[in-house]
């Protein structure tokens, strides 16, 4: 898996990524699309760490701004 931009979050990210990819290949692709509570809990831990890092680096506001202008994500030039 790829690294996190915040090294202090890398462990939590790896735990979450592993959970997600297992859920994706074993459940989601086979039609059980309901989210996994286990992965959601790991994501919450990772996100807490990541959001703190994003705020510290000043990226958090940029993301918030981007969500406002393209709520559906990156339709930027396409819309």
């Amino acid at each position: 898996m790829s690294a996190s931009l915040a090294p202090e979050c890398s462990e939590r990210k790896e735990r979450y990524d592993t959970c997600f990819i297992n859920w994706y290949s074993e459940k989601y692709l086979r039609g059980s699309t309901a989210p996994s509570p286990e992965c959601e809990a790991l994501f919450k831990e990772y996100k807490t760490c990541l959001n703190a890092a994003l705020k510290e680096k000043g990226i958090y506001d940029m993301i918030k701004e981007a969500r406002k202008t393209s709520p559906n994500g990156g339709s930027g030039g396409a819309a």
Binding site: S2, A3, S4, L5, C9, K13, F20, Y28, T33, F43
Partner: peptide, 14 residues
């Protein structure tokens, strides 16, 4: 050139 990939949010439409 890609040094990190982080997931910000993830949802499934029920």
């Amino acid at each position: 050139h890609v040094i990190a990939v982080d997931t910000l949010d993830r949802t499934v439409d029920p």
